[in-house]
Design a protein around this nucleic acid. Sequence first.
DNA 1: CTTCCACAGGAACCAGCGGACC
DNA 2: GGTCCGCTGGTTCCTGTGGAAG
Length: 406
Amino acid sequence: MSDVVDEIFDAAEKSRIFRDREKLLPDYVPDVLPHRDSEIKRLALVLAPSLRGEKPNNVFIYGLTGTGKTAVTRLVLRKLVERAGRKGIRVTPIYVNVRHRDTPYRVMADIAEGIGLRVPFTGLSVGEVYKRVVDRLNRRPGVYIIVLDEIDFLVRKHGDDLLYRLTRINEELSRSRVSLIGITNSTTLVDSLDPRVKSSLGEEEIVFPPYNAEQLRDILEERARLAFNDGVLDNDVIPLCAALAAREHGDARRALDLLRVAGEIAERHGDSRVTKQHVMAARMEIERDRVAEVVKTLPLHGKLVLAATVLVTAGGRKATTGEVYDEYRRLVRRISLEEVTFRRVSGIIAELDMLGIIRARTISRGRYGKTRIIELAADPQAIIGVLSRDLGIEELSRLLRDARHW
DNA sequence: CTTCCACAGGAACCAGCGGACC
DNA sequence: GGTCCGCTGGTTCCTGTGGAAG
């Protein structure tokens, strides 16, 4: 037995495929970012005044996912801090990813942590945390640069009150200065902001265009050199990853994920080279994982509405909100649970759409009313699998399994 | 041109929970 | 121990609306 374990560990120690797998992880920021020179320059220019101890302008950064917004920001901040350190100036970056911390309190709490303040994860008011932050900033003079990544998630759910407060924070500071960098995936977000927030945050604006397939190839090649052993990649692997990601609006993160997972699959299978087939398998694995992740964390009635959607869209037909709701009711009654209202189901459908698990677009059928037409946006097999296991209701699992015959 | 369907989706509010503060 | 807090997952009530039918 122990030699089996040893074998596994031995194999894990000297990977045949990877030289350094971490270089492909989403949060790794390389020193070289191909095709982002002008964006790097612009951001550096904006932030440069902090080296003189002055407050840089606030910046608004837009661009679709995987266009290098976060990487560029981190790179520039890293260099800025290095430089400031050598000159003995205190510049403190505070990075908050709002996507998974999408309430005003949590964002404020993260900012507090970012300046070394311990705050409880609940119990205090937002105002109280804000006060403590202001207090701390006044006690420790310096330039602070707060990065709010993916702020769309905060604004969409909770409005821009917190943003407004943060843009005014300097009025309460005597010896410190705070700059804001707002990063967003959505270009339409700006229009929904309070004009005061808009003008303050948008003192500077940088737009990140999507990468094309050729540029993605450069990025992947650069990174593959660091991450893979020499000669393990088939020639068509990188072009394929680039092409697949280019189809999804030039998402570099997606391209890197594909490459990494393809490598992982090759390694798991004990193959010595990464091939096109590994990339195709990676695509499916990534999708399955995404679906599983999303579906598992859905609240109970979210899962049930999704189950109803699966049933009513069997055979690839499209359904309306009303049809999904009817099916949902039938389902819930059959397994004798309490049902939620139509309004809630409508809201859940909107949430599932946002999560990318279904597609729901509103249309008008004239005399026959306005509704959304709904279809699945993810692999039905994967959804059914996760729902069956997760709900643990035998009758429902059977229904879903039967719906699979289409 | 008007009507009217089948909803969309905003707004205000609520219960229950885990937790902080005094 | 009472009061306050935020978050989630709801409810109730509501106004708004694209476009086929009449």
